[in-house]
Design a binder for these strands. Structure first.
Lengths: 149, 149
DNA sequence: TGTAAAGGTGGGTAAAAGTGGGAAAATATA
DNA sequence: TATATTTTCCCACTTTTACCCACCTTTACA
C-alpha cells in the first residue's frame, strides 16, 4: 500500500525522482500519468489506470457531454511513462503546466493506497488552506459515521 | 489506444503537426477530419469514421429534422486528409475557422481512445473553465461508481 | 568511525521530433 | 498563352527527448 508525503524537486529537464519507498510498492517500471481532479497530477500503476479508464469509457458515448468532459479532462491527458534507471519519471510539459509545476520547483508526492498524487508545493499549500473548512466538516461526518459502528 | 494532450502550432500554410505518439497509433496516412460536438474538430481513422457515420445515417431519415442537423453538422463537413512526410495534416480553411483556429495559432491535440480532437488553445481553456462545475459533478458520480466495484 | 551499498543529482550525447521555408506542380486568372 | 496564386512536396535546420554514465550524499552496519 502506497503511503507517505515527500518533497522532491523537478530538475531542469522536467524530471522528478519518485521516492524509493513508493517505487518498491509499484510492480513494474511503467506508470500512467494524467491530470487529477483539483490542481494536481495522478500517477497510476497500469492495472489501476485500466479500472478508471474502463469505467469512463465503458458506459459512455462521445455524443454525451459529461462523457466528453471526463474524456477530455482525465483520459486524453494521460501518458505512459517509464521510471528511468535512477528512479525518475519525465513529466511532459503540457501535464506539468496543467498542475502549475515549475522547472526546478519543489513538488509534493503523495502516496494514496494504490496511486500517487503530484502537486506543486505552493499550489498544495493553497489547496490545504482553502479547503480547511471543508476538511473540518468532512472530519465531523467521518466521526459520526464511525461512532455508529 | 490514443492518449495524450499536446500543444502544437498551426503554421501559416494551415498545417498542423500530429504528435508522433499519436501518429504511430493510427495505421495508414489517411484520416477523416470533420466538425466535432463543441467548438473543436474531430479526426478519425477511416474505419472509425465509418462506424460513426453509419450510426448517424443508419438510424435516420432525411425527413427528420434532427437527422438533417446531425448530417449537416457532422457528415457534410467531413474531409479526407493525408499525413505528409513530416507528419502534418493540412486543415481546410472552412473547418479551421469553424473551430476558431487561427493561422500561426496554438492548437490543442487530444488523443481519445480511437480518435483525436483539435481545439484552438484559447477556445479549449474557455471550454474547460465554463464546464468546471459540470466536471466536478461528473467526477463525483464517477467516484461513486468506482467505489461500488 | 570506516566502508560499502543504496539513494539521489546533474549533465553529455545521439536520435527523434518539430519547424520553417523554398521549389515544383497544379490550379486559377487575365 | 502568359501570368499569378495556391497547394504539395521535399529538404535543412532547430529543438526536444531518451538514454546513459559519473559522481555526490545518505544510510546501514561492521
Amino acid at each position: 500500500m502506497l503511503m507517505g508525503e515527500y518533497h522532491n524537486s523537478i530538475d531542469d529537464k522536467s524530471r522528478l525522482l519518485l521516492p524509493s519507498r513508493l517505487r518498491t510498492e509499484v510492480a513494474g517500471s511503467t506508470l500512467i500519468l494524467t491530470r487529477g481532479v483539483d490542481k494536481c497530477l495522478w500517477l497510476f500503476p497500469p492495472e489501476e489506470w485500466r479500472r478508471i479508464s474502463d469505467s469512463i469509457m465503458g458506459s459512455s458515448s462521445m455524443f454525451k457531454s459529461k462523457t466528453r468532459l471526463l474524456q477530455r479532462r482525465i483520459i486524453a491527458p494521460a501518458q505512459e511513462c517509464e521510471i528511468d534507471k535512477s528512479g525518475r519519471i519525465s513529466i511532459p510539459p503540457t501535464l506539468r503546466e496543467s498542475a502549475e509545476m515549475k522547472l526546478k520547483g519543489e513538488a509534493v508526492i503523495l502516496g494514496i493506497d494504490s496511486y500517487m498524487e503530484l502537486w506543486d508545493i505552493d499550489a498544495y499549500a493553497d489547496y490545504l488552506q482553502e479547503s480547511e473548512t471543508d476538511f473540518m466538516e468532512a472530519a465531523e461526518e467521518l466521526g459520526e459515521l464511525l461512532s455508529l459502528q
